[in-house]
Amino acid sequence: MLEIRFHGRGGQGTVVASKVLAVAVAKEGRYVQTFPEYGVERRGAPVVAFTRIDTEPIYIRSKIYEPDHLLVLDPTLIAAIDVTEGLKPGGWIIINTEKKAADFPQFKDFKVAIVDATSIALKHRIGSKAAPIVNSAILGAFAKITGFVGIDAVRDAVHELSPVKKDENVKAAQEAYDVAKAPEEK
């Protein structure tokens, strides 16, 4: 079983990102479970969501404390909280950032990949200038870098779940998929 944790801020589409991944995985015929950690929801506050993926039915329904991989939708969270808490060594950390993977030496026990999802979202005018919605783009990058889910399924799921600007969201996912590349093995 794969266990994945999403970190974002309220309003960025973090919970929707976890649901898009779930729909994509289900489309590929695997079992999936995704759930947010609900506290007091407000714009800008740190948000966490979780996804489990398996080829067998999933029975466990407790929280995920030791995820295999992370998606970080907002890079400012890295300074604010310990995003790697419980993360298994060697796991992927996929970060939405303008920086390079090498700019995150603190994550040396993990595999870091970056995608500038904010720029891609702004280019396709998804969300507002002040608060672009980056979930479609980061999932495109996730599909490319990890190979855990196919881009076709991600595109279909993005189209299905985007409340507005469906085509723009699909394009953002595809663009992130095209530009993202995994860093070379050390």
């Binding site: 649901k19 779930a22 289900a26 695997r30 079992y31 999936v32 479970q33 995704t34």
Partner: peptide, 10 residues
């Protein structure tokens, strides 16, 4: 609540 109601699954 939440554990099933807001959790997405296949």
């Amino acid at each position: 609540a939440f554990i099933i109601s807001h959790a997405m699954e296949r």
